[in-house]
């Protein structure tokens, strides 16, 4: 399976982080299924035209986060179950960070809180149904 996406090279986001973000998005949106094997480091690196060490670093961080797991001798896979590696405090912090970003955006757009909440619920339902539909396959 190829994981080609468009890197933004002249970006303020480091390349390895872009790869991480893309893999995470792919998992959430279903392009990467649970338990699916990711391309080898070198293969992905050559298709993205980046240093293999950069890809390796992205993989390693995702493994550390628990999104990916490495099976020795075979390769790197999407973890079957998302294991919680982080402590509760860490999970809370990360959530707060994401929420803060969302709320900043809403304030700038001058959207009242109830509308934000209803939008949140709507999106949650859509994503859940997507995950469920994939699980059924």
């Amino acid at each position: 399976m190829s994981l080609v996406f468009s890197l933004s090279p002249a970006s303020d986001v480091p390349i390895y982080r872009q790869i991480i973000q893309h893999i995470r998005r792919s998992v959430i949106q279903g392009q990467l299924e649970l338990g699916e094997q990711l391309p080898a480091v070198r293969v992905l690196a050559e298709s993205l035209v980046v240093n293999p060490n950069t890809v390796a670093r992205a993989y390693q961080e995702l493994i550390r986060d628990g999104l990916l797991e490495s099976r020795s001798g075979v390769g790197v896979f999407v973890a079957e179950e998302s294991r919680q590696i982080f402590s509760d405090a860490e999970r809370k912090r990360r959530l707060e960070h994401a929420v803060e970003q969302l709320l900043h955006e809403a304030l700038l757009l001058d959207i009242p809180l109830p509308d934000v909440c209803s939008s949140l619920e709507e999106q949650w339902k859509i994503l859940q149904s997507q995950i469920n539909s994939r699980r059924k396959k």
């Binding site: 493994i63 797991e69 001798g73």
Partner: peptide, 10 residues
Amino acid sequence: NSAKPNQQPE
């Protein structure tokens, strides 16, 4: 390499 992963990749 601050955090060593639990499962050691090769």
